[in-house]
Write a protein that binds this DNA or RNA. Sequence first.
RNA 1: GGCGGGGUAGCUCAGUUGGUUAGAGCGCAGGACUCAUAAGCCUGAGGUCGGUGGUUCGAUCCCACUCUCCGCUACCA
Length: 511
Amino acid sequence: MSHNNFYITTPIYYPSGKPHMGHAYSSILADVFARFKRIDNFNVHFLTGTDEHGLKIQKAAEKDKSDTLVYCNKISKTFKDLSVKLNLSNNDFIRTTEKRHFASVNEIWNRLVTSGDIYLSTYKGWYSVSDEAYYNSDEITDKNGKKVSTFSGSPVEWMEEESFFFKLSKWQDKLLEFYEKNKDFIHPITRRNEVINFVKGGLKDLSVSRTSFTWGIPVPNNKKHVIYVWLDALANYLSALNFPNINDKLYKTFWPASLHVIGKDILRFHAIYWPAFLLAAKIEPPLRIYSHGWILSGDEKMSKSKGNILNPLEIIAKYGIDQLRYYLMKEVSHGSDGNISLINLEKCINSDLANNYGNLCQRVFSFIKNNCKSRVVKNKNLSKEDLNLISKTNKLTINLKAFMNNNDLNNYIKSTIEISFLTNKYINDEEPWKLKKTDIDKMNNILHLCLEQIAKISILLNPVIPIATTKVLEALKVSSKSKNLSFIKNNAIIDNDITLGDLNILFQKIN
RNA sequence: GGCGGGGUAGCUCAGUUGGUUAGAGCGCAGGACUCAUAAGCCUGAGGUCGGUGGUUCGAUCCCACUCUCCGCUACCA
């Protein structure tokens, strides 16, 4: 992959339930990175999709009295719809029930067999039918003479079943070496440390096939077995690039992936299993895994019984997608769990979007419409105050790329909205309304700089709030070509002689 | 239990490689202005920087102990 290509993915979602805020967060996060890279001149490929493998899906379909694939079509669509509602700019949407994915998983499996990393043996352990889970002997207690799971209390029985295993143990040292060589492979650092710690504790071989159900990709040459969900699911990142056709343009351009955005609950699969599978299959591992935290509501995980569920679709319907995107990206702090609430969402919309950025646009556009017939001509040199504003703005933009490269959206947004603060203050200090009758040229210059500032903020916020900023940039006659980071510091995004398009209120205030 | 990360203004957090008055945003109080979505701007109130002890001329920042919260600790994903 050359330096100007950027391949970013969300997890593929498991549609056993309805899309929730966690899905929305992962997707928006990835979308913001994707959009940012695009305005930073990268050739971006952005992938999302659904994982439709396994017993839960199979059972849900039975319960629904549907054919399993028909059922999958239905629930996968809810996620595809969500990606539209979230205004994702994904280039592709992959489903694990697609042909291209079968081909890719088969190839990986065969490569692992050929390399000697997969062998047939027996899986033994305490199995709970109701939990669909195996437990270790230290997770089992005696209750009335019966063995039960310490966690769920459900009865367990000793099971032995034939299973294929992946020689994960063999990759322990190689993984540690890989982490050491690739310091940025796992973000944030605390997650990286956890993973390394875990691997150092020793890796057991991994059971990579199941015989208890059929809804999945069969093991080549042994139809009794279905390939383990993660070996199946992770391969989607390759399938979407038309692997195993390694001469395909997509594959050649975009592999290895630049960034897998995931939630912390699936970190192990991405940070340990995935590179191990790939190294064993002689495929280059991705460059980075970014593991974000959970979205909590009032300090607690959202749950039906607590009645604290915040449904992304309802919030979008009530407040708007730009609003939700901005709030999540600004408030959920980098890498850790984030508490969200409607009260804080409303505060955030009012203070940053309506009162600050939105009102800045409004006051400048209205002023120019009412006093200059929507036309502004820059015709003087910059004043000391102008230069001061520009230099402060440039200072704020210096670190923006670094913030993004560090997956630090919070600081990116804080710095950007700070430009809006500065510009609002500049208008108050310069008082262009007082110059109407005394110095029209100076007034024009001030207004022109305000527009320039608005253009900068709009470009910078475009990855986060694409709808509103696009409206502003259109009204400013900024071409899509100029919608680019490289124009920010030149202070010459808009024309010197500009006639503004109309701009309505961007963000309604919430009372 | 083991390993790791926190505890700083009402809330969310930043910060100090130890050094005179500890910062931001939101919220709150007051003021001047009026182009704007009664938005924006200025000023202010508010913190013994979890607790105790130690090192030091000096610690919120270093060390020890302690209280407390959280994360990870493999086959559900």
